[in-house]
Simulated assay, not measured.
Amino acid sequence: MRSEGHVRFIRISTRLQAGIAGALAGAVLLWIGVLGWALLSTVLGLHDQSSLLGREAAVASAESRVAKYRANLQTIAADLQKRQDFIEKVVQGSIGPIPDSLPRGTVSDSSGEAARTVRKISMVLPGATGLARVEQRQLAFVERLTRFADTRAAQATSAIRKVGLSPDMVARNDRAAQGGPLIRLATGPGLAIDPRFARLGASLVRMSLLDNGLARIPNTLPANLDYISSGFGYRADPFDGGAAFHAGLDFKGPLGAPIYAAAAGTVSFTGVRQGYGNCVEITHGNGLLTRYAHMSRIAARMGEVVKPGAVIGAIGSTGRSTGPHLHFEVRISDRPVNPRPFLEAPLPKPPLAKANNDVQQEAGARRPASRRG
């Protein structure tokens, strides 16, 4: 600095320069932070406002929907009628046609009370008459479906008893293998639902358990053949002529003819057994087992789940055999029983297994098993 002919010098140390620069940088950063916070607050405010508008729009939409319900009860009732039509068609398409005439003693009949309810609602709240009629129709359908399930369960119970098995044991064995997450059908105090729906659920469960048991009872002819060449019980041994016990039925047939599973089950043995030759065994549950022997070819695999009428092998003459035939046994708790009552019993076919009926007919399930050579 020059002043009156004199020169003076002002020296600024490095430390002071760094301090001044740091202060300026801090001021700039503070300024940027304030601007950023103001901008962020503006954006958040706009977002909150947008969310509030969205919630208000949703509330307005729901309120308008309620208003539409109030103003168009007949339209809503017509829509529910169409849904009920759809539900009934789906149910009947799954289990088959439900007869109009069913025993009424198995479940309550709410038709009279439902009709009185419709009349009262018609007088008190005419606009809700259509909805009351939909409810009346639903209750009638639920009770009709319950009677159908009870009727089928009774038929299955009778058929299972005819072949010497216990229906309760069949149902218990199926029920023993169940599980899954708990999903309530009703919530709130008491967790209660209309008893008519609970009754329907119980009836459908029992019908399903017994129908599954029926599918595992040997009722399909194991071979599409002309006659039985040897029956169950004591006979003259075909090799030495002495008295012997025959533990099954012999179906004579051509070499290589198909052999069918007599019922649904799991293949528990494939291979060679002494005296039986090539052999397949199928376990059906409830202590039931079927054995197919003297095969020329085995077409089943260990652990395979088979349906009635599934091809499991071919007729042959392996093992202790005098010619091509199928030796067929039914065993309960490993004790041989006469297969005839099983094959000849007129068991009702489960409604949920329509596809199996075609297989069983192809396998000769409806052919008489009593012809002898």
Score class of each variant (00 low, 15 high):
residue 277 G to P: 02
residue 268 S to H: 02
residue 230 S to A: 07
residue 185 L to P: 04
residue 214 L to V: 07
residue 262 A to R: 00
residue 184 R to L: 13
residue 272 V to Y: 07
residue 253 G to P: 01
residue 262 A to G: 05
residue 223 A to E: 05
residue 277 G to K: 03
residue 252 K to W: 04
residue 260 Y to C: 00
residue 229 S to D: 03
residue 204 L to W: 04
residue 197 F to K: 13
residue 227 Y to L: 05
residue 200 L to F: 13
residue 194 D to G: 01
residue 274 Q to R: 13
residue 214 L to F: 07
residue 249 L to M: 04
residue 215 A to M: 09
residue 263 A to D: 10
residue 228 I to T: 13
residue 212 N to R: 14
residue 231 G to M: 00
residue 227 Y to M: 03
residue 205 V to F: 11
residue 227 Y to I: 05
residue 202 A to Q: 15
residue 245 F to Q: 04
residue 220 T to Q: 09
residue 231 G to D: 14
residue 198 A to K: 08
residue 269 F to D: 11
residue 206 R to K: 10
residue 228 I to D: 12
residue 243 A to E: 15
residue 193 I to V: 13
residue 214 L to A: 11
residue 240 D to T: 01
residue 262 A to D: 11
residue 239 F to T: 01
residue 244 A to N: 10
residue 231 G to E: 12
residue 194 D to M: 02
residue 247 A to G: 10
residue 196 R to H: 12
residue 219 N to D: 12
residue 242 G to T: 14
residue 234 Y to K: 08
residue 274 Q to E: 15
residue 259 I to C: 03
residue 217 I to H: 08
residue 191 L to F: 11
residue 182 L to Q: 08
residue 196 R to K: 10
residue 267 V to T: 10
residue 191 L to A: 11
residue 232 F to T: 06
residue 237 D to S: 02
residue 264 A to T: 08
residue 193 I to R: 15
residue 205 V to Q: 12
residue 183 I to T: 13
residue 184 R to S: 14
residue 197 F to S: 15
residue 271 G to F: 03
residue 234 Y to Q: 11
residue 228 I to H: 10
residue 275 G to F: 00
residue 245 F to N: 12
residue 272 V to T: 10
residue 194 D to I: 04
residue 239 F to Y: 02
residue 187 T to E: 14
residue 202 A to D: 15
residue 270 T to N: 06
residue 272 V to L: 04
residue 217 I to F: 06
residue 182 L to F: 09
residue 234 Y to C: 05
residue 208 S to C: 05
residue 225 L to S: 14
residue 264 A to I: 00
residue 214 L to I: 14
residue 256 G to S: 06
residue 267 V to S: 12
residue 240 D to L: 02
residue 211 D to P: 03
residue 245 F to D: 14
residue 263 A to V: 03
residue 199 R to A: 15
residue 195 P to T: 09
residue 208 S to G: 14
residue 201 G to Q: 12
residue 184 R to M: 06
residue 222 P to C: 00
residue 254 P to Q: 15
residue 215 A to S: 15
residue 234 Y to G: 07
residue 241 G to A: 04
residue 257 A to V: 03
residue 255 L to C: 11
residue 266 T to F: 00
residue 235 R to Y: 07
residue 277 G to F: 00
residue 277 G to M: 03
residue 225 L to F: 09
residue 186 A to H: 06
residue 234 Y to W: 12
residue 266 T to W: 01
residue 183 I to R: 15
residue 237 D to Q: 04
residue 265 G to K: 06
residue 249 L to P: 01
residue 205 V to L: 12
residue 277 G to L: 01
residue 220 T to W: 04
residue 185 L to H: 15
residue 196 R to Q: 11
residue 225 L to I: 08
residue 254 P to W: 09
residue 252 K to E: 11
residue 184 R to A: 15
residue 252 K to M: 10
residue 209 L to N: 12
residue 232 F to R: 01
residue 190 G to Q: 05
residue 224 N to S: 13
residue 234 Y to S: 12
residue 181 P to A: 15
residue 252 K to Y: 11
residue 195 P to E: 11
residue 253 G to L: 00
residue 270 T to W: 01
residue 228 I to F: 10
residue 196 R to W: 01
residue 180 G to I: 02
residue 183 I to E: 15
residue 201 G to Y: 08
residue 247 A to S: 12
residue 198 A to M: 09
residue 240 D to P: 03
residue 198 A to N: 07
residue 185 L to R: 07
residue 264 A to L: 04
residue 235 R to M: 01
residue 256 G to F: 00
residue 255 L to P: 05
residue 247 A to P: 11
residue 194 D to S: 09
residue 201 G to V: 05
residue 202 A to P: 04
residue 219 N to F: 05
